[in-house]
Design a protein around this nucleic acid. Structure first.
Lengths: 206, 206
DNA sequence: AGCCTAAACGGACCGCGGTCCGTTTCGTAT
DNA sequence: ATACGAAACGGACCGCGGTCCGTTTAGGCT
């Protein structure tokens, strides 16, 4: 008999060999561990290979480059964060009204980005989060803007609203210019207000 | 006699030795030449040292790091651009009304950044232009916003307006997402409009 | 169980960024 | 002109990211 797949294609087709999958896990754990214990800059490819007990070549085959590895580690926390947005408690999650969700979203994004700033920077180009990750925040922002009745070129407008929350700009403001976090956030809220077109804070319903 | 300075402190005090100054010139020219002839990625520290006919150590003493060297090369064009803004022809230079100047400013910034995108990226952290360079655009933007009667936290607002024109964000939009340049620019104008508070295009005076 | 091939493995090897330190040069004071 | 200290020089050296290729292994087929 030749039934090549008993379970109807559940996993991605060019199925990953068992040892490969195992090593991917080992490497990711090793990398994460190094980050937590000694900071991102301590994550050298040799170190993570040694910590995982595999050869250096394997690290590169799995993750392309050091930046790729960093991005993969980031992806972990990013995924958890996405879950909070899509199905967590309001106001970040669904349920609150769009404006409150937008504010919570900005706040959370600000803090998360700052928290991972170092790793994002070390992930270099891929560190603006893998394209998929960026797509998610962009999409969610477009959705909230649409919900708030904003008209215009939403993809571009969403990018403009997100830009000040990206790591390099935040870095500039907080680390280099020394602006306090609350001021940066307040500024972002003001920006959102201007983009959405709310005139000052709403008088809180009735 | 001990008059240590005949000309009353004209130059920066810890005066640069003649050979040092000469080598700085040689190195900058060499680097610029390499960039023009073979692109930024061809600029290796050994190559630029060899091209300038000096030792590798000298390159590092003058420019700290590869990123520093890149930033120095960038600084050249940046300075010329600043001159255009401060004393060039309108609408970029002084003379036009603030709104037109702001539009010209954004347009010019967009094009310049895109032109040097590769080098900016390779200049890494220092590539958001040396702090001095960033200060200039930030200051000019604040000035124009103030001139346009915008109130609020101008430093933060200026950053927000400039952020979508920074290299990483532009890169994302143009190179990765493939948005045409004109669309990105139009989006930026719309952003400016919302921040400044103009309702649609002004009816062109009377 | 034994075979066979595609895939994964691992570590020697290379180039480049960055450091270090013994040597040379500049500029001044005599 | 000479001497001398500070500053600049240059290139050997090191660690790390990334590649290459000969060897090993997973896992389907008979």
């Amino acid at each position: 008999m030749s039934e090549p797949e008993l379970l109807p294609l559940l996993d991605s087709l060019p199925t990953e060999r068992r040892d490969a999958a195992r090593n991917r896990e080992l490497l990711l754990d090793a990398a994460q561990g190094l980050v937590e214990r000694h900071g991102p800059h301590s994550v050298t490819m040799d170190a993570v290979a040694a910590a995982a007990g595999v050869g250096k070549g394997t690290v590169f085959r799995r993750f392309e480059s050091r930046e790729g590895l960093m991005a993969a580690v980031l992806n972990h926390s990013e995924t958890e964060w996405q879950a909070q947005v899509m199905s967590g408690a309001p106001p970040l999650g669904p349920g609150a009204d769009p404006w409150d969700r937008l504010l919570a979203f900005g706040r959370s994004r600000l803090e998360t980005t700052l928290l991972h700033a170092e790793m994002i920077r070390e992930a270099g180009r891929a560190g603006m989060r893998s394209f998929a990750a960026y797509s998610f925040v962009a999409m969610h922002t477009r959705y909230l803007l649409a919900e708030l009745g904003v008209t215009g070129d939403l993809p571009i407008l969403a990018t403009a609203l997100l830009a000040p929350l990206e790591a390099p700009i935040l870095d500039q403001q907080v680390t280099i210019e020394g602006f306090p976090l609350e001021r940066v956030y307040a500024g972002w809220v003001d920006l959102a207000r201007r983009i959405v077109g709310r005139d000052a804070d709403p008088p809180e319903s009735f």
